[in-house]
Structure formats: structure tokens, C-alpha cells
Design a protein around this nucleic acid. Structure first.
Lengths: 203, 186
DNA sequence: GCTTTAAAAAGTAAAGT
DNA sequence: ACTTTACTTTTAAAAGC
């Protein structure tokens, strides 16, 4: 898979040494975050662009790799949060967010706005929810989504609330705490999003 | 023509100043017991005024930074008041301070909701990351300011060096939002 | 890059009642 | 559950690490 980049490593330049470190780090993160090869290759591509622009000078290479991976997730609409990347890479969320903004500005990257619907599967599998509930939650988000209740809200909080509502309607016994934990948000957030969802859906 | 008239209110003004002489911060600390000065933590001394409610940082170089004012004039007045208090406290200050406005922060209400998602796609130099912050961050080139846009139709404009720039920024953005049909009026 | 100051916007979080 | 406090973002200057 990373053949394209590995072939360049045959030439022993400092840049290639840097690439090797980046690739091994990305491979390690790939397993921890369970993302596909396409995401890793995109992250490697973004990282290479950052190297070419000289964005690594005086900066943490690890933080740049982690943020390149976050950018790749965003670009491919792979639902991974800054928190996820932070835990997998042992780099503070704030540092990854700062590097990510740097990548957006310096490389002129345009990312799609996170779609809460794309977050449903990940939360559902972590919480062990049924396919039926996932489908219901998707419908809920599409209906409410998004006339406007989603603007400014954390996509994971919206998806978690939709899944919780779907559980209740489908009689799947899952607590707010279960869903909140799987989504990485608090129960309070689920309750708050639930209020808006209830109004938007006339529940 | 904008459909509504934005309500603008200046919330904070940051000004730099200088009395062009070295200052003994330890001496100020002795005569003004409620100032904060922790040189190991930060080189500036914090001198707070109750009226206007401001905080002025004083450095050994005689340079200062005044924050918290609600207007350009209030910031200049605050600096004068600080120098006046220092003199009354026995600290020798030969010249009056020269003041420069460095930043003006204002909150604005456009009077209609903003379609943030669409704005994120159509506004240049903007970033919208709801996972990190609920507002869309837009960098305006002229005037050079940064505006935070919220779906409620409220804004925060920062980076302006004079009040007219705040109004110009808001009017530019408001016209742009209407032009691109990103405003939702009741 | 960090440290300190102030302020608004709206969302999220944590702690205490 | 509710309230309070606090942190996220943006901006600018100051002196020094």
C-alpha cells in the first residue's frame, strides 16, 4: 500500500528518513484507530505537502502527523474525533487542533463539514446497538437535519442524541450513559440535544 | 440594501501606552497593595481600576497595556487615571503617557439567523469546526479583522484598530451574507 | 510557542447543591 | 436536575524565556 512513498525511501536523504518515521507512526495509528489504507495514504500525502511547505521546522513532527491524519479523516469523512486521535497518539487535543488549523491555512485545504449521520455507525458499534436503531437514528437526523438545530453543535452529541431517541422508540434498553460513553460526550449533552430533537420531530 | 440594521456594541478595547521612562514595579507594589506582580510568572504588573473597570499591565520599561475599556476614549482616560494614581502615590512619572489603540472587540446582532453550514461552504477564508467551537471564523481582508459568526445571527468582530473599522467589517459581511442568501429573517 | 489582561459569542463540561 | 464556574475560539500589545 505505501509503496509509492516507500520507493522514495531508497534514497537516503534526511527527508526520506523523516518520511520513514512518519509512515511507521501512521501505521501504528492506523491499527489503534482502525482506519483504512486510503485514510493513511491521504494522511501521508498531506504530511508530505506539509514537509514540502516547510511546516515541520520548529514543530513537533508527531503532532503534525497526528493532525495530518485528522485532516485525512475529515477529508474522507471517516468519523474520528480530535479526542480519538489524541488518545491514540498521546498528543494533546489542543495541539492537534492547532496543527490542523495550520494545515488548513498553509495548504489551503477545504474540508467538508462533519455530517452527524456519519457518526452514527461508530457510536452504534461501540454501544452495541442494532441495525434497526441505526437506521432509525439516521432517519431522525435526516428529518431534523437539518433544518437548523445542528448549527454550531458537536456532531457526536447530535448523533448520540439521535441514537438515544432511536433506542427509546425501538424499545432497545440502553441508558443515556451507555450512549454518551460510546460517543465520548456527557449525558448532559445528550439531554440538551434531545430537547431540540424533541421539538424538531414533535416527539 | 441590508434588511436589518445591525446592533453593534464595543465590548473591549486594548491599548498600548508608554510613559517613556523606566519604572520600579516593586516600589509600585509597596504603595499599591492591591496590584498583582509576580515577575517569575509574568514581567508585567497588573494595575486594576474600578472606574473605568480596566486592567493595565505596567512593565519596567514604562510601557503599558490597558484592557477592558468599552470605548477608545475610555481607554485613553483609563491610562491617564493610572498615571495620575501613580503620581498621587508618590511614584515619579515625568511625561504623560502616549496611547495607541491596538484592538477593538465588538459584539453584533444582525437581527436574523445565519445559515452557518452554507456560509462555511461559500465564504472565503472561513473555518467552521463545530467539534471545536460553535462559531464560524471568518477572516476579512479589508478592514483586516476577524469575525466570528453564530447561527443565532450574532457576531463578534475583533482585530479592528479604530471603531469605524468595526462598522465597515460588519456592513461588508452583512452585505455578503445577504448577497449569498445566507441570512434567514423571520 | 508560552506566560498575563479583557471581552463577547454558544457549546460543552464538571462540580456543588 | 439546576446553578455556578470554567474552558473552547478570536484579537493585540507588553518583556522574557
Amino acid at each position: 500500500r505505501l509503496r509509492t512513498w516507500d520507493s522514495r525511501s531508497q534514497v537516503h536523504e534526511p527527508v526520506d528518513r523523516n518520511f520513514r518515521q512518519a509512515f511507521s507512526e501512521l501505521d501504528r495509528l492506523k491499527d489503534k484507530l482502525a482506519v483504512g489504507d486510503a485514510v493513511i495514504e491521504k494522511a501521508a500525502y498531506i504530511y508530505r505537502k506539509a514537509l514540502e511547505k516547510g511546516l515541520v521546522r520548529g514543530r513537533s513532527i508527531s503532532a503534525l502527523i497526528a493532525s495530518a491524519l485528522y485532516a485525512a479523516c475529515r477529508d474522507t469523512e471517516t468519523p474520528r474525533t480530535l479526542k480519538d486521535i489524541g488518545q491514540a497518539s498521546n498528543i494533546k487535543r489542543k495541539d492537534i487542533a492547532r496543527c490542523y488549523r495550520l494545515l488548513l491555512r498553509e495548504l489551503n485545504l477545504k474540508m467538508p463539514v462533519v455530517d452527524p449521520v456519519k457518526c452514527i455507525s461508530r457510536i452504534a458499534s461501540k454501544a452495541g446497538l442494532s441495525e434497526k436503531t441505526k437506521r432509525k437514528a439516521t432517519k431522525i437526523l435526516q428529518t431534523a437535519e437539518e433544518n437548523k438545530i445542528s448549527a454550531g453543535k458537536d456532531p457526536m452529541g447530535l448523533a448520540a442524541a439521535a441514537l438515544y431517541v432511536a433506542c427509546v422508540t425501538n424499545g432497545e434498553n440502553k441508558t443515556q450513559r451507555d450512549v454518551a460513553e460510546a460517543a465520548g460526550v456527557t449525558e448532559v449533552t445528550i439531554r440538551n440535544r434531545y430537547k431540540g430533537l424533541k421539538i424538531a420531530l414533535n416527539l | 440594501m441590508p434588511q436589518t440594521k445591525p446592533i453593534v456594541s464595543v465590548e473591549n478595547v486594548v491599548a498600548s501606552a508608554s510613559v517613556d521612562q523606566k519604572m520600579d514595579l516593586n516600589e509600585i507594589t509597596k504603595t499599591f497593595p492591591d496590584v498583582e506582580y509576580h515577575p517569575d510568572q509574568f514581567p508585567g504588573l497588573v494595575f486594576r481600576l474600578k472606574t473605568p473597570k480596566t486592567a493595565t499591565l505596567i512593565f519596567t520599561s514604562g510601557k503599558m497595556v490597558c484592557t477592558g475599556s468599552k470605548s477608545e476614549e475610555m481607554a485613553r482616560k483609563a491610562v491617564k487615571t493610572v498615571v495620575q494614581k501613580l503620581r498621587k502615590g508618590g511614584i515619579k512619572v515625568k511625561k504623560d503617557a502616549t496611547v495607541q489603540i491596538q484592538n477593538i472587540v465588538a459584539s453584533i446582532n444582525l437581527g436574523g439567523k445565519i445559515h452557518l453550514e452554507q456560509a462555511a461552504r461559500t465564504l472565503p477564508r472561513s473555518m467552521y469546526e463545530p467539534e471545536q467551537f460553535p462559531g464560524l471564523i471568518h477572516r476579512m481582508l479589508d478592514p483586516k479583522t476577524v469575525i466570528l459568526l453564530f447561527s443565532s445571527g450574532k457576531l463578534v468582530c475583533t482585530g479592528a484598530k479604530q471603531e469605524p473599522d468595526v462598522y465597515r467589517s460588519v456592513n461588508n459581511l452583512h452585505a455578503l451574507l445577504e448577497e449569498k442568501n445566507l441570512m434567514i429573517y423571520d
